[in-house]
Write a protein that binds this DNA or RNA. Structure first.
Length: 769
DNA sequence: GCGAGGTAATTACCT
DNA sequence: ACAGGTAATTACCTCGCG
């Protein structure tokens, strides 16, 4: 029979020694189903050292090999004869070992589910018309199982109505971070997309059981929470085992199991960890659930309760903690609903299933996308190899003309690197180090050559992505802006853009299968050439260039001349540039990549300055923002100084929240990898000795307190600091004064004069001034 | 033993 | 764990100082 299904996930399963792919799906009628496909053979390739026919003959005699035949493939753009080996999936390791002396192996490192997706052009999070035969009844979360005969992609876009649950778990630690071998689960909060909320509290065994029953009863397609992969699932599995319960939250009564990219897989459901998603949003400073919710315009909790404060609250005000936990569950649900288009488009375009598409690093997502293209055009998929990390020159950054400028236009090249790659045909299979073979274009600045007689692999992929994006944008226009379809298509075109923009970085990534340093070098060299030419043209037109970085130019605004420049760029360089914004006023510090501007729409833009950095205390950041704002809006020097003085006075009088004095730094390495002491590492070590689990990637918040010795010797975790211990002078001299001086330098106020003013502020001499 | 001065380590930003 | 370019702070080392 014929049915339409949306693919939720794919898994490779073993059924009585037979390899099968199970496609977990949702029918257009809401049916939850498994489509089973028996997989007889898995293929890989051998590029033989000697005669291909002879190699094929030898290989076909190896046990486990179903067939071996000579095929024409491409390898880094060159035609090669390869032996396509088909073998039993379970035998692939043995067979590849047996043939490896005959030549170089390709694609034997792909997992069966990936192989299936590539070979059949099956994409998760997409709709298919399926020809199926009923295979079994349902039960345990699926309505039916089918044998899949064949499938065809359909035009449908948006996901079906999914059942989603947001989760949060609370544990009761004896001391420090909860430890699964020791501390019980004390509360489980559940928020369902149908509006029902549940919270299980009390005796551990009964609440875990109630949770499992709830999952079985509601049978969600999506389970979402924060830190599910790194904390909750491993924790719950240990607790359940201890209690003699099976954590059967998967369809067909399965437990969560560890999968690729550090992700936990739950059969038949999407297990989505919001922490993975948060990590990629550069606008977030620490990637907390609260920040993510705020970023997406969703409600905040009544009470901010981090892990360091929660044990105390759990003893003192249980209700508040439970309410907070419920907020986390609800927020997780809402966040998933808000970002689901992004997740599903990324998944369907790259072929990485939705539950781990954001657990995988951006490079792997793009790689999956490239692999799909490679199979389509017959390019062999190289294996990743360990490489040294040689670096190469990047973008060109101009020294800003320091001071306050009025009327400055910012001109940006649109997608400069992808455009250059397209224009020059730069790809891992088209670029070589000089000397140039015939028909190659020599790029002097990089000492490289680019093939011009054939289209590169990346060029083909980029062209396709650009075309597809244009098509999506065309279709988009047919729908109203607030429609379901418009939002989905918009997510789709953004995803295509993200992938296109990542191709340059991918080519320069030593971990990439299609790594080519010369290629990446050529891109940046041509980028520098392009911006340099644009600068010269701007000058020639009489535009004064005040700053520039990689693909942007800041010029004194003159509409006519800027228009001329933009036209010239399009005509002569074959690239697109646009007038990005106009600053009424902009302040350049003496440093590159740091400036403050006020746009013609009266928006304050702070770039690179401490106010936009996560590792300065909020009080200093707010002060810098206020000072920059005043200055850009034309306040007098006296007015700015008096505001500065007020802020210092507030600080001296301890008229600030302690939390605004916390300095946050990420633990970028494992604690034992640090070579020197730093405040955050010393504090982290102390936390660890007290039973807290802080690891690589965590943010450590500390406050500098009074005392002797280096800063790291008098930094304390914020949860343990009383405002009276704070070293106010440190905050004045090393936080507030420097960040204000950075801005005020342009009106001749140097750090030492600010320091002098600060010395008298709040010292009981206010009336004197 | 101690401060000056230079440099390495470290983080987080910009494009 | 997609790239390089950059600023900034703090820690640490070396050197001179008789």
């Amino acid at each position: 029979m014929e049915k339409k299904f949306w693919i939720l996930d794919l898994s490779a399963e073993k059924v009585k020694d037979e390899d099968e792919i199970w496609i977990w799906s949702i029918g257009e009628d809401g049916e939850r189903a498994v489509l089973r496909v028996k997989v007889e053979g898995q293929r890989f390739y051998v590029v033989p050292k000697a005669d291909p026919l002879e190699a094929a003959r030898k290989i076909s005699n190896i046990s486990g090999v179903i067939s071996a035949q000579v095929v024409e493939k491409r390898l880094f753009g060159e035609k090669v004869s390869a032996v396509e080996v088909l073998c039993k999936p379970s035998k692939i390791e043995d067979v590849s070992k047996a043939v490896k002396d005959l030549g170089t192996l390709y694609e034997d490192d792909l997992r069966l589910s990936v192989r299936f997706i590539l070979d059949n052009d099956v994409k998760p999070a997409s709709w298919y018309k399926c020809f199926v035969e009923q295979d079994g009844k349902g039960g345990n979360g699926v309505n039916c199982t089918y044998r899949l005969i064949r499938m065809e992609k359909t035009e449908e876009l948006a996901a079906p109505k999914l059942r989603v649950v947001g989760l949060d778990f609370l544990y009761e630690p004896k001391i420090g971070t909860p430890i699964p071998e020791r501390d019980p689960v004390v509360a489980i909060s559940i928020a369902r997309d149908d509006g029902i909320k549940r919270q299980f509290t009390g005796e551990e065994k009964s609440i875990i059981k109630a949770f499992i029953e709830e999952v079985e009863g509601y049978n969600p397609d999506v389970i979402v929470g924060y830190r599910l992969n790194t904390s909750h699932w491993p924790y719950l599995l240990i607790r359940a085992k201890k209690l003699g319960i099976k954590l059967e939250v998967g369809r067909l009564k399965t437990e969560p199991h560890q999968s690729v990219y550090g992700h936990f897989s739950i059969a038949g459901r999407i297990n989505f960890d919001l922490k993975d998603y948060a990590r990629e949003i550069t606008e977030l400073e620490r990637g907390t659930l609260e920040e993510l919710a705020r970023f997406l315009g969703l409600p905040q909790p009544k009470l901010q309760l981090d892990e360091f404060l929660y044990p105390k609250y759990w003893k003192e005000d249980r209700e508040k903690v439970l309410e907070y936990s419920m907020w986390r569950a609800s927020a997780s649900l809402s966040i998933f609903q808000t970002i689901s288009d992004h997740i599903f488009t990324m998944s369907s375009i790259t072929g990485v299933p939705p539950d781990y598409v954001f657990s995988a690093a951006a490079g792997y997502r793009l790689e999956n996308y490239l692999m799909e293209a490679a199979v389509r055009i017959g390019e062999l998929i190289p294996k990743p190899v360990e490489r040294a990390l040689p670096t190469y020159p990047g973008g060109k950054v101009l020294t800003p003309e320091k001071g306050i400028h009025e009327n400055v236009a910012v001109i940006d090249f649109k997608a400069m690197y992808p455009s250059i790659m397209l224009k020059y045909n730069i790809s891992p299979d088209t670029v070589k180090r000089a000397p140039c073979p015939k028909g190659f274009l020599f790029i002097e600045e990089a000492g490289t050559c680019i093939a011009q007689d054939r289209k590169g692999f990346f060029t083909e992929v980029l062209e396709r992505a650009v075309k597809e994006r244009e098509a999506v944008r065309d279709i988009m226009k047919k729908y109203p802006k607030d429609s379901r379809e418009y939002r989905f298509l918009d997510a789709m075109q953004r995803t295509l853009k993200v992938l296109a923009n990542a191709m340059y970085g991918y080519m320069g990534w030593t971990g990439a299968r299609w790594y080519l340093r010369e290629g990446a070098e050529t891109v940046t060299a041509l980028g520098r050439r392009t911006i340099t030419e644009a600068i010269e043209k701007a000058k020639e037109l009489g535009l004064k260039v005040v700053y520039g970085d990689t693909d942007s130019l800041f010029v004194k605004y003159d509409k006519e001349k800027v228009d001329k420049l933009l036209n010239w760029i399009e005509r002569e360089l074959g690239l697109e540039a646009k007038l990005e914004k106009i600053y009424k006023k902009v302040i350049f510090t003496e440093a590159k990549k740091k400036y403050a501007g006020l746009t013609i729409d009266n928006v304050l833009d702070l770039v690179g300055l401490e106010a936009v950095r996560g590792d300065w205390c909020k009080f200093a950041k707010d002060t810098q923002r206020v000072i920059a704002d005043l200055l850009l809006r034309g306040a007098s020097k006296d007015r700015v100084i008096s505001v500065f003085r007020e802020r210092i006075t507030e600080l001296r009088n301890k008229n600030v929240d302690l939390i605004d004095l916390v300095i946050w730094k990420q633990l970028a390495k494992r604690i034992d990898e640090y070579e020197v002491s730093a405040p955050h590492t010393v504090v982290a070590k102390e936390l660890i000795s007290e039973g807290w689990k802080v690891t690589k990637g965590d943010y450590i918040g500390f406050v500098v307190v009074k005392g002797k010795g280096p800063i790291h010797a008098r930094s304390k975790h914020y949860s343990k600091v009383d405002i009276d211990e704070v070293d106010i002078d440190y905050y004045i001299e090393k936080q507030i004064v420097p960040v204000c001086a950075r801005i005020l330098n342009v009106i001749g106020l140097k750090e030492d004069s600010l320091l002098k003013i600060a010395k008298t502020a709040g010292m009981g001499l206010e009336s004197f001034f």
